[in-house]
Design a protein around this nucleic acid. Sequence first.
DNA 1: ACGAGTATACTTGTATACAAGTATTATAGT
DNA 2: ACTATAATACTTGTATACAAGTATACTCGT
Lengths: 244, 244
Amino acid sequence: MLNDSKDFLYPEKWLSKASTGERVACELRMRIISGLIESGTTLSENKLAAEYNVSRSPIREALKVLSNENLIRLERMGAVVVGLTEKEIEEIYDVRLLIETFVFERLVKNDTAHVVRELTKIFEMMQIAIKYKDADEFALQDVLFHETIIRSIDHSYITMIWNNTKPVMESFILLSMRMHFNEKYDDLSRIMKNHELYIDAISSKNREIMIQSLHQNFDDVQGKVDDLWMSQQMLSKAREQEKE
Amino acid sequence: MLNDSKDFLYPEKWLSKASTGERVACELRMRIISGLIESGTTLSENKLAAEYNVSRSPIREALKVLSNENLIRLERMGAVVVGLTEKEIEEIYDVRLLIETFVFERLVKNDTAHVVRELTKIFEMMQIAIKYKDADEFALQDVLFHETIIRSIDHSYITMIWNNTKPVMESFILLSMRMHFNEKYDDLSRIMKNHELYIDAISSKNREIMIQSLHQNFDDVQGKVDDLWMSQQMLSKAREQEKE
DNA sequence: ACGAGTATACTTGTATACAAGTATTATAGT
DNA sequence: ACTATAATACTTGTATACAAGTATACTCGT
């Protein structure tokens, strides 16, 4: 069983009806992005299967998924971990900027009332998540917020891009939220302000505001990148000390 | 063996070192895009495995791939074929427009001499392909042309998007080239002119020309869409008559 | 001591087996 | 004739088995 080991990074309640393969993918993704599995490591299907007490079938499935997300590179012998460097995180946000800009241009051609209503709901959920200091829930709603915007235009290939970037983004946001959800309140309020701005832009169909919010979101990320970077550094130092 | 049946749509020489799963994916993709497998059809792993004389493992792999490409929808029971409607083809070109615009902005910040050289080589290959009326080779080089542009900026997530859209685009171009490679010479010369324009834009770093070439490329596609559409209609009519 | 070649222990890709669940069909009862 | 229920045939997800190929390590010869 996959649940033998206790310390999983990915919230189990989000995996209610996920297959073993998806579970493994989610967990491995978190371990790679958090730096718990270092870049350059070679993963073997057999070893992973033994580690997670499952057969190779779901492991293979998971590795295919992670390879699609650019987190590992499937080679002739073994899957080598690529991981997320600062560059890659910037790049994934490039993509989000790109598609959200595109989506906005589509969105303003139609009635946005329905989307705005949905986004407002999610916004309020995020407020509750802050109130109860639930970092995971906050991250989930944050991602859902952007997903809602993107899916609203019903564009199959934009959706495809989102589907491929979402898991990495989700894990990344999840980790950085957990890291300092309780400390940096000013960060959170900035994020909330920014989401308000998104809603404003879509509701008023104001291109200027949209650009502003997209840009600010990017700045927010910069901070998160630094945090993750630091945490990875800390982890690897801790490992080194362990070895001594 | 996969090669028992003789009439494959996908060029076998492009599959030299592909696994069985990839082969099946390529073939199924062609059959779906060409309309040979109609939208709405439900595919079963067992039936496909029997049809292609392989086990379920590579079939599963292929279905996962096609599902990532939005060509099928994996449901609880069976994989239902989504196929390519006119809308989807437009959407995939939306994405190409989006990422090629992005790539161009990155590209002009650096030295483009190397890319231009590569593109020119491919351009000449395309000319040879026309000379010898090799539609498949032409399609291959056409796709490679755009791939070369996109990969030149070394952006992992833009590359990821390309990797996910490429197969569908390749199949689509392949089919439309085969359809009227020998008839519509004016079409081909227009395509070649357009590719020249691409090279000009990148070499001169001229945004105006780039926009022009991207736009024209889009117009070219419009024709192809109509052709594919007609061919699918013809196919389905032929099938109906067969039934009578 | 060192290099060539072989044996071994790994790797992936594919095939098969099994289990749990779902749709369909047939049958029995009214 | 029609409905409800049960049997059956088919579905996927996971586990296991096997084959072909590759890297490592070891042994043997010089």
